[in-house]
Design a binder for these strands. Structure first.
Lengths: 233, 233, 233, 233
DNA sequence: ACTAGCGGGACTGCCCGTTGGT
DNA sequence: ACCAACGGGCAGTCCCGCTAGT
């Protein structure tokens, strides 16, 4: 039902991490706001899509902050964003996806691919997750906080996140399988990534339930320590 | 939405693990049909409930086997079980729960409590999960196979299972926290259990996707080895 | 999609034509308003259903008369009838069915069953159709006119009517097959009833397109003459 | 909704019956592939249109054969045919029309016009329908079978076919009215043609429901006998 | 007390008008 | 000048919570 079909604009929109990229070596330009950068060379059509997408997100964020998640119907979000309800579903496969970032997993995957091939699988995985967490930290603070609060509080959102992360986990498993020369369905690789993603998810939930008092990265480092320590303490 | 309110009759209905039980050691009494056994000492009211519950389950299993999960509406299940749709929801909090066993997590929790207090947390967890898997194996083969197939194939069911397991994980974490003298919200304990449950879930999914060719317990032993080996291989 | 599942209340609501009925001989009481008669001994629940059904119909009729069929959304009909849109669909399987009477075909079937067994199939059929047309004439004039206008003008309504009549035709064919000792799928019987229902439908459409100037029964008698005359003139 | 606007290219695309055509009498040239033949003298533009049209049809046929009619969305058909969804609707007014032949009724009309003016109306009609059925038989067997199966099984397709045939019937009625010197809206003529088209439709449905075991033409001959025999047997 | 039924919201699929891009 | 594609809009289905009859 909630197929994770490529979202409209997610192709051109997210040209992917493209880590080195042509001419990337020419400087140390920090990661810019992808939206603005992309807008430059995109047709009017694409720019409009980006705007619509952003408008829906913002409307949703605002309304949910005001009235709560369940009390906010998609219809009202659409209204606030000045689009039709069907358009909302054309941009986001489900209501939950409106508040969930959909770039996280691809970020992680790209980060994993970029790890040195000789690195230990667990370490590679942990580094990759950490890096994407860092990238996420670039977002606006409030958005992150609100999002993780929803994850902690609304079962449907949490479920959807897990679903997304499971898909991501599977992709990560495939990448890892390639690195280690195992089959793409190798149970051990899959179990490893599942354990790591499960732990990562719980870390975020802990962070949110705690009221975001700790720093997420610090918390994740403790998680990494537990995993690296062989789950013994 | 999917409130995890105590299921009707889940108190008396699921007499729970009752681990050794009085006189359990006295012989080799095969695992009886729990329903029949329970029926003995329950009032007529309770027995009727049990019957209704079973009728709904069977109707659902049959219809889903015939037409698939999504094509089977709750309304038709209700019809086949000769109850009203609302009755279905009084017995099961959501459609997914009809096909998902709701005793698994309590089983695991009880098994964990029964582990020797000196045992290493990870080992205790793995043993507990394994034991509940063994208990599950007592079920009819076909039911288990169908259930895990649904878990592997239907996103909604998978999501619901994960949700259930997350709750379970949280309970396990609390038990573990007591054992180790940590706070009930201690992130490390939670992360550990999350990693283990995540791995366990993936094991079941692997098993199902593979067409149940391997033995589930054998597969789980490999999972346990990975986790015990410190996630390195 | 548009399954012709028994409409809510269509069981008790339309206890069928039951022409003679037990105790029918005790008097010559004309056919009363079925609704009122039924209301007497029905529970509050059933009476409410009847009322809801009527309210939806009336709202639809009124709105469609004011703004036309396509311009009238189901949502507005629901609003005017003070029910929720889903309730509308619980009462009527499709928007078209709101304006189409759903008792016509059962009426015809019953009338056919009541014909003397020795009667010629074609004659029996024509009499049965005519009788149900007479029964229909008992309705309010304006309702009939509006309905047939919609049939003539709105393709979707016309299509739905044909669908309904086709089902009815099939049932008639079965009755006829019994009478003549043929199989229920006998092509000749089916073709005969299809020809007659097709002709009947066209008669109604002619009547509507002509602005209801002629009398429907008179028109149908011409149709009957054509069919009886062997389709030659 | 289902506007019966002239299909794109249905003018030049479907050169239509072109009854005798230049040199038609000169021999026994088998019915060639109309597409190829037409391609010869059509501009590149037109040829492309034909190709697109055929591509959509094939994609639809294939997908529907694989997954069923309702499960096949227009979007997927468009994808498979490598066009945009809107293009699909530019070529076919509705989803149903993709699988329905849209040449049948014009074929029949032309055949009717070609009948000798002195012929009895009923006979002329039956011959015309029979001839178009023969022409249809020239199609690939599998396509015809699949199409009629859909007509028998999918209500929406059946409804659409009826709609189409009703339009056709009306046109036939006009032709017949001319021949007999009656007005174009003469009820008797319309009733006659409606009866015949209704019977023809039912014949096709019978054929399909029976699993296409009988020969369609043989079946139609029985239908013709019933109609000619004055609907008595 | 038990349960039938209604409210209502998420979501999908068909179809169409308009507009940007080529 | 064509044409894809985007957005709008509506019918319809399903799940599930709550209310109110029996």
């Amino acid at each position: 039902m909630t197929t994770t079909a490529p979202l409209p604009g997610s192709g051109p929109t997210a040209p992917g991490p493209t880590p080195p990229g042509p001419g990337a070596g020419c400087g140390l330009r920090p990661v810019r706001n992808a939206l603005a950068a992309a807008g430059q060379r995109l047709g009017l059509r694409e720019r409009k899509k980006l705007k619509t997408r952003a408008a829906i997100r913002e409307a949703a964020d605002r309304l949910i902050a005001e009235q709560g998640y369940e009390a906010t119907t998609v219809e009202r979000i659409a209204e606030a964003a000045e689009v039709s309800p069907s358009t909302v579903f054309r941009y986001f496969p489900s209501k939950e996806d409106i508040v969930l970032t959909d770039e996280y997993d691809r970020l992680t995957e790209a980060a994993l691919r970029a790890r040195p091939p000789a690195e230990d699988p667990l370490d590679a995985l942990l580094h990759a997750v950490r890096e994407s967490l860092v990238a996420l930290a670039g977002e606006e603070e409030s958005a992150r906080v609100r999002r993780s609060t929803l994850v902690a509080e609304v079962p449907a959102v949490r479920a959807r996140l897990t679903e997304t992360m499971t898909d991501g986990s599977r992709r990560l498993a495939r990448v890892l399988a390639e690195r280690t020369g195992r089959g793409p369905a190798d149970p051990e690789v899959r179990v490893l990534t599942a354990a790591v993603t499960g732990a990562a998810r719980e870390t975020v939930v802990c962070w949110a339930e705690d009221g975001h008092r700790d720093d997420l990265l610090t918390l994740f480092d403790r998680t990494a320590a537990v995993l690296r320590g062989g789950l013994r303490f």
